[in-house]
Design a protein around this nucleic acid. Structure first.
Length: 275
DNA sequence: TTGTGTTTTATTGCCTCC
DNA sequence: GGAGGCAATAAAACACAA
């Protein structure tokens, strides 16, 4: 038994607790070895509403043999301290404990539980963020696929026209007096015409979806986005995003890559694999 | 009032670090 | 080996709908 770490150990430590039949440790009224129990109970009664905090009789009626919650003021100070630093060095723990009328162990437990709650929330935020990024990329992919289909149709159309020209023996176009090109297919806009300016084909076969291309170029960066097709990754902020996390998350490296890609400043989206 | 789900407080056991 | 952190868990306290 690690006595040094336990606050409510009945058999080996302070002896200021008792056990129910099921072995649950509970407060026991009476002298305490570490601090005055009556003091503690007055300072941190359990409560069900802020109004009751002002009700002295309510405090007096509370059984001491119950697990009790910290007062709003205690929680407020603990939260404030947690915001400053979510780890608790021994000196700060002692200071907080004496300031709040709590056992250092209780302060340590509170911080431990608070860190666990923060982590849970952070995971939820990260999930939302990843889902948002995924949805955004999915939307972009859909737009690019449509654009690709459009460009393919244009290639077919223009190829057929060139072949028809060749068969008819029409001389190549030379200058403004040449025969105008036939009307474009109605669905092709002028700005959608095939042009990469890079020597590469702009028609990308993405029938199977985007694959990881670790060539130093981002596929999305080279693709010509149709208007309104440039997706963005929404920032997701939950109700508990209180600033205490400094914006940290467990997938920050992933988000950095995704956001860099989205903003046209990143490298290849190395983690993105469509299957 | 009561049943049920959620939150908070606390314990236990294991792990890491010094 | 002791101190402290974390995950898992228990259980009291609390919220709320029926």
């Amino acid at each position: 038994m690690d006595c040094g770490r336990l606050f409510f150990n009945p058999s080996s430590c302070h002896g200021n607790v008792m056990l129910f039949g099921n072995g649950d440790p509970v407060f026991r009224a009476g002298p305490r070895s570490v601090m005055n129990m009556e003091e503690t109970l007055k300072r941190r009664p359990f409560f069900s509403s802020p109004d009751e905090l002002l009700d002295e009789e309510y405090y007096d009626e509370q059984s001491p043999e119950k697990k009790r919650r910290l007062s709003p003021e205690q929680v407020r100070l603990l939260e404030k301290s947690f915001e400053e630093e979510n780890k608790l060095e021994p000196e700060r723990k002692s200071q907080l404990a004496s300031k709040l009328g709590l056992q250092p162990r209780q302060v340590a437990v509170w911080f431990q539980n608070r860190r666990a709650r923060w982590k849970t929330k952070q995971l939820e935020r990260d999930y939302d963020h990843l889902k948002s990024a995924y949805d955004s990329l999915l939307s972009e992919f859909d737009c690019i696929r449509k654009e690709n289909d459009k460009l393919k149709a244009e290639v077919v159309f223009l190829t057929e026209k060139v072949q028809a020209r060749d068969l008819a023996g029409v001389p190549p176009i030379s200058g403004p007096k040449s025969e105008p090109l036939p009307a474009e297919p109605p669905h092709v806009k002028a700005e959608d015409r095939l042009s990469t300016g890079s020597g590469r084909s702009a028609v990308v076969d993405i029938e199977e979806g985007p694959h990881l291309v670790d060539s130093g170029d981002s596929y999305f960066l080279n693709a010509a986005y149709p208007a309104g097709c440039v997706g963005t990754v929404d920032g997701v902020q939950s109700e508990e995003d209180d600033g205490s996390d400094d914006g940290r998350n467990y997938f920050s490296h992933v988000f950095a890559a995704a956001e860099g890609q989205n903003h046209g400043e990143g490298e290849t989206l190395g983690w993105w694999v469509w299957s």
